[in-house]
Design a protein around this nucleic acid. Structure first.
Length: 112
DNA sequence: GACATGACGGCAG
DNA sequence: CCTGCCGCCATGT
């Protein structure tokens, strides 16, 4: 009950989009926020990912900031886990930054 | 109910 | 080129 309690659906949308990210591709917080219609609220996406920490079907390691920088790597429990995971998918990372980022970026608002 | 924080983004200096 | 500030919406205290 209590359907008037804000909109947890916002997180569900974020999880769904993140789960739809193709292997070897990444997306940005702003891109997801824009897809959700709340362009500019990239912070909410970051918060959603924080809650997604306990979801095994949410590849948060495929979500980076607008600079292609692994800003959230610190939240994976290991400072190199995120980079290793992305490299396993064919993504090259240098100095915590994704190489050819514009070539691996995946925009839900555009692809979907 | 108000204040402070947050895995960001854009703009100004 | 680099640094700093504001805006965005929701959560936690």
């Amino acid at each position: 009950m209590n359907a008037l309690k804000t909109k947890p659906n916002f997180f569900e949308d974020v999880y769904e989009v993140v789960k739809l990210i193709p292997k070897g591709r990444v997306t940005s917080y702003g891109a997801i926020a824009e897809y959700l219609g709340s362009k500019g609220s990239s912070r909410m996406v970051g918060w959603a990912m924080n809650q997604a920490h306990g979801l095994p079907d949410v590849p948060a390691h495929r979500v980076v900031n607008r600079n292609g920088l692994l800003t959230g790597k610190q939240h994976f429990g290991s400072p190199t886990l995120m980079q290793e995971l992305l490299e396993q998918e064919g993504i090259i990372i240098k100095n915590d930054q994704i190489i050819n980022f514009e070539s691996v970026i995946w925009l839900p608002v555009k692809e979907l």
